[in-house]
Nucleic acid binder design. Sequence first.
DNA 1: CAACGTTGTTTTTTCATTAGGATAACGCTC
DNA 2: GAGCGTTATCCTAATGAAAAAACAACGTTG
Lengths: 111, 111
Amino acid sequence: MELESKFRLTKEGEKIFGNGPCLLLETVRKLGSLSKAAKELNMSYSKAWSMINRSEKALGCLLIDTQIGGTGGGGSNLTPVAEYLIKAYRDFYKEAIYILDVLYRKYFEGF
Amino acid sequence: MELESKFRLTKEGEKIFGNGPCLLLETVRKLGSLSKAAKELNMSYSKAWSMINRSEKALGCLLIDTQIGGTGGGGSNLTPVAEYLIKAYRDFYKEAIYILDVLYRKYFEGF
DNA sequence: CAACGTTGTTTTTTCATTAGGATAACGCTC
DNA sequence: GAGCGTTATCCTAATGAAAAAACAACGTTG
């Protein structure tokens, strides 16, 4: 038996940030492009775009800095806010997973 | 900004137990009937039944002890396994929520 | 100035999960 | 044996998410 845990930051019920957007942003940082990141993660561009867009709307500030046209057609890079959020979420996540595993063993060891 | 957390016990990907089944079982214990519990929670009987059934299948043992027919048409009562699971889950949940709130403030206080 | 690959956006279609409705079986009570 | 309320089960409908398609706008490159 295993424990599955999910976390999500919200603002008045609106989704702001979670595992999906975090992974997507990290891939954007690696590839410098939202469309390439979507391909890498096997999701449609429109889904990737709407994930970022929704987070930005709920958050009230930009997560990616985009360029349309130009060399290579354009691209996307992370804003400082996005970098901050990713780091905070990853640190939080790592610690949370560790503690929850301890709790899980404490309460469900026998099962 | 708030943190939303969800937990679920699984076995090889199959859902075993979580917030929904736990609340449903607690309501069954209170009312002595699965159909009454479903009404109290505003869900259809078939949904309530399938929730329990799926958990039992994944778990490999019974969670409710049912009687069909007889006085009042029958009814359902919790098995010792169900009682054990409910208590373990509630204790786990309470402690997990507390710790996660501490972590949340630690990492996202500024936001 | 044409080509290219990207972003931005809308619309349509597909798909999976969930919710609900209908019905049979059951056993006690009257 | 009829009536009742429950459990058990199946089948259909509704909801919502995901995917896909389509197209305009953009700016550098050659």
